[in-house]
Every structure is written in C-alpha cells, then in structure tokens.
Amino acid sequence: MSSPAVVSAPSIPRGPRVGRFIVWGIVGVIGLTIVTAITVEFSFLDIFRNLTRRNLVLDGLLSPDIGQLWSERSLSAFVETLQLAILGTATGGLVALPLSIWATDYGNPYVWLRNMVRIFNAVVRSIPDLLWALIFVTAVGIGVLPGLLALFFFSIAVVSKLTADTLDSVDRQPIEAALAAGAPTISMVHTAVVPQILPAYTSFLLYGFELNLRASAVLGLVGAGGIGARIEFFRGRGEWSEVWGIVLMFFLVVFLVERLSVSLRRRLV
C-alpha cells in the first residue's frame, strides 16, 4: 500500500488581481449613467404615458398611406435617394482608399505629407453626416448637389476609418519582400498590400452604402434632396399618414438592400 500523498493536487495558481483602473472605470460608468439619467429627468412612466396618449402622429402610424408606394413623386424621390447613396459611396469610397494608404507609415515615405493626410482624415471623420449636409446646403443651395457632396465626404470618413484599421494589421512580410526587390512605393502597395485588404475594403464599401442610404433619408430634412425632402414636405403639412407610408416604404428598401449587402459581404470574407 502506498503512503498517503505528500503532494497536494495541482490547483490553478491565483491570477493577477483585477486592476484598480478597471474597478474605478466600471464604478465611473455606472455613476455617470445614474447622474445623467437624473439630470435629463428620465422616467419610464413618462415615456409610457406620452406614447399611449392620443396624438396625430401616432394616429398616422395606425393608418399609413400605402398609396405612397405607388405615388410617382415619392418613387422618383426614392430613386433620387438611391442614386445619391450609390454615387456618394462610389466616389467617396474610391477617394478613401488612397487617403487611408497615404496615412500609413509604409504607404507614404514623406512624413509631412503623411501627417497632413492624417489630420485631413481626422477632421473629415469628426464631422457627422447631417452637419456635412448643412454645410453644403449653405454653400451651394438646396437640392441634390449638397446631398451628394455630404455623402461623398461621409463615405470618405467611414470607409477610410475602417480601411485604416485593416491597413494597420496587414502582413508586413510581403512589404519587406517588395522593398527588397527594389519596388517603388506605388507598385509595392499595389502588389503587396492591396490584395490583402481588397476583400475587407469591398465589404466596407457595401457597409458605407448601407449607411449612406439611411443617412440620405435624414439629409432631405435640411434640404439636401432625396426622400427626406418628401418626408419633410408631408411633415410640414401635418399629413402623418403620408409620412408613415413613406417611412414604411423606406424601411422595406433599406431592409432589402441590407440583406443583399450582408449576403454579398459574407461571400467576400
């Protein structure tokens, strides 16, 4: 018979203690949420009361004007919105590719140019879509053009941000090989970097298109054309059934486009 084991069963050693930073971070987030909820007088009761009180807007929701689906003016506004989204994504997304490449250390040998591009990208990214629309409505007047310009810059912001993250995590080994072979920067980027990011970049273009389609509904509210202008028209006249009819239609289109885009993107990656 063996003697009783002297060695105790192995147990997982104690891990490092949870950092003070994390603990205080969580406490801070919870505290901030409570404080802000109190200051904006947030209350579920009020939301419930207001939502169940009769009002014209909600009456319209109960009887949406499905006829908007056939209305010629609403349809052409829709086509305009789609055109805006496609054109804005295509142009902005195309410009976003070199802009994000020029902001990387390997894609741009000139430090000053790299920093200028980085500053430009940061500024473009910090401006929201609606603000772009306001800027261009002020600059070039009401119509489709300010909407297109807004989506152009908004696409640059979205696509260049996402592409930049992909460019950061690119495999550097082929870059070294291309440089060792004496390739100029443009040729190096084209052969060693672009094939690596192309699937992700295409997926970002589709995602940008989804965002633009949704954004273009709002852009019309400030006079930048598309279906938003139509919504604003009916809203101004208090014709809520028509507003909800268009919203319903918009929901259908966005839903279909998103399904299509998601399945396309899945095939890419």
Binding site: D171, Q173, P174, G182, T191
Partner: peptide
Amino acid sequence: RGDIGMIFQGFNLVDR
C-alpha cells in the same frame, strides 16, 4: 535592390 534578390525565412509571399 533591383539587382539583389532576397529569400526569407517566412517566404514573405502575398498569400491571397
């Protein structure tokens, strides 16, 4: 560099 070929431990190919 154009006249000097280089071969690497990790092959350094573009996988895609």
